[in-house]
């Protein structure tokens, strides 16, 4: 995954079954952001791996004042990368069990 300067991690153990999972996002390198960034710590949120779209969550974070509009794409990509990794690990676990 590209280093966007925005870190997204699991905020809870992934049991491999739940479709909704808690994620935690924070900025590691504010210089990589285009917009003015006010340090606001780690943002924890729930994401439905099956139904939701990372870019929508990023837009909600912009609308909630965490990020500038010009960084919506960067935040969305960071969430998308982590979601892809979670899904890949789940598929790998399932195929290993099969």
């Amino acid at each position: 995954a590209e280093d966007t300067g925005v870190r997204v991690e699991l905020a809870e153990e992934d049991d491999g079954k739940k479709s909704s999972i808690a994620l935690k996002l924070w900025v590691e390198d504010p210089k990589k952001l285009k917009g003015k960034y006010k340090e606001s710590g780690a943002i924890e949120f729930t994401f439905d791996l099956e139904k939701e779209v990372p870019e929508v969550v990023a837009q909600e974070m912009v609308e909630s004042g965490f990020f500038h509009e010009s960084d919506a794409k960067t935040v969305g990509k960071s969430i998308r990368d982590r979601v892809a990794l979670i899904k890949w690990r789940r598929e790998r676990t399932v195929s290993a069990a099969a």
Partner: peptide, 27 residues
């Protein structure tokens, strides 16, 4: 640790807390 909540109009809850300590040490 202090944390704050922001609820987006679409209903999603954002819980803000300090960046995890361990990560800060890594930086």
């Amino acid at each position: 640790s202090p944390s704050a909540q922001v609820v987006h109009s679409a209903g999603r809850r954002f819980i803000v807390s300090p960046v995890p300590e361990a990560r800060l040490k890594e930086q």
